[in-house]
């Protein structure tokens, strides 16, 4: 019998993949509500089928389709994500274990997140985009049984910031051209992006802010 108390916020392995517990409803048979970190999908299970993992420095994992490495000694910058692995909230703060928040301001004692929580430097690990070579991948509990190659998943990660990756319907304006060109993304195949008006360019080129500038997306509002 497994006597393990699952708590909100813990990282756990479920079906060999890394999940985060976002809720525990003790009265139910399936009492553990999980969110899969890789794609933020929701799952439900019981305490016996999960196994706890405590994230530490130099671990790398995929969060919302992008890969990050946890670092302790690096200074965060505004816009970076942090994993609050050692929460010591002040009386008026509102955050808990393993929450992932965006840094808004940095001062000598800690950072202030976009949710306006004051978090001391000792309370979090910085999530640095990309999988560092010296890192320890924690996406799967048992690497051997995974057919999928981690390097392959890495190539799928086009850009660490979701706001900067291409979506259907995005309207871009060409910057290094005298004639005004504004075009909408109508199709994406692999790394090739098809824009309205028959333009066909590589993803890297579209992401180069000197050449193309994102305007707006009429479908996202």
């Amino acid at each position: 019998m497994k006597l393990f108390q699952v708590r909100k916020g813990q990282f756990v392995y479920f079906n060999n993949e890394l999940h985060k517990v976002y809720g525990v409803k003790p009265m139910y048979k399936l009492s553990i509500h999980l969110i899969k970190l890789r794609d933020l999908s929701q799952h439900i299970t019981n305490a016996a089928s999960v196994e706890r993992y405590i994230p530490r420095e130099d671990d790398s994992f995929i969060f919302n389709h992008k890969v990050y490495t946890l670092r302790n000694n690096q200074k965060p910058a505004a816009g970076d994500l942090i994993l609050i692995n050692n929460p010591v909230p002040d009386t008026l703060d509102h955050y808990s274990l393993n929450e992932i928040e965006t840094v808004e301001k940095i001062d000598s004692k800690g950072v202030i997140t976009s949710d306006l929580n004051g978090i001391k430097h000792s309370e979090y690990l910085l999530m640095v985009p990309g999988r560092a070579p010296d890192s320890h991948p924690i996406d799967y509990k048992d690497m051997a049984s995974v057919d999928e190659n981690l390097d392959e998943t890495e190539t799928q990660i086009i850009h660490p910031y979701s706001d900067l990756s291409v979506q259907l319907g995005d309207v871009y304006k060409k910057k290094d051209h005298d004639v005004l060109i504004e075009a909408m993304v109508v199709a994406i195949r692999g790394h090739t992006v098809f824009l309205g008006g028959g333009l066909e360019i590589q993803h890297e080129e579209l992401m180069n802010t000197d050449m193309w500038e994102f305007q707006y997306n009429p479908f996202n509002n």
């Binding site: 002040d90 009386t91 008026l92 703060d93 001062d107 004692k109 800690g110 202030i112 306006l116 929580n117 004051g118 978090i119 001391k120």
Partner: peptide
């Protein structure tokens, strides 16, 4: 906590 915030220029990390 509130006095700490107020007296340190409104920081959330007194």
């Amino acid at each position: 906590f509130v006095l700490g915030m107020l007296s340190e220029g409104g920081t959330l990390n007194p």
